[in-house]
């Protein structure tokens, strides 16, 4: 029996043109910064609720994402970030 605890899979990994966009819904507090300040308008507020009762962002135009990483730096809750394909992250 392994003692290693497997981490819970709570992060959504969306494929983009140049890599991936990750959204961790359970950390989101619905401030809307990523939605408002995304330069490509990739995100929209989803209709669903997370466990805290907020509406997390939903990438409705994921094909427009250019992996600029601004959502990752402006998100105060570490709930959204990107990864460029080929980076070491």
């Amino acid at each position: 029996m392994s003692t290693e605890i497997e981490k819970e899979k709570t992060t959504e990994k969306w494929p983009t043109d140049q890599g991936y966009l990750y959204i961790r819904e359970d950390y989101c507090k619905g401030c809307g910064y990523c939605i408002e300040f995304c330069p490509q308008e990739v995100l929209e507020e989803s209709e669903g609720f997370n466990e805290k009762g907020y509406h997390p962002p939903e990438p409705t135009a994921i094909d427009k994402c250019v992996n600029c990483g601004f959502c990752s730096i402006i998100c105060p809750d570490f709930a959204i970030w990107d990864e460029k394909e080929g980076s070491n992250e």
């Binding site: 497997e6 981490k7 819970e8 899979k9 709570t10 992060t11 959504e12 990994k13 969306w14 494929p15 990750y22 959204i23 961790r24 994921i62 094909d63 990752s72 998100c75 570490f78 709930a79 970030w81 992250e89």
Partner: peptide, 13 residues
């Protein structure tokens, strides 16, 4: 385009 569930974390972590 459908997301895949992972246990990845924000790079700041």
């Amino acid at each position: 385009v459908k997301p895949e569930l992972t246990s990845a974390e924000h790079p700041a972590t």
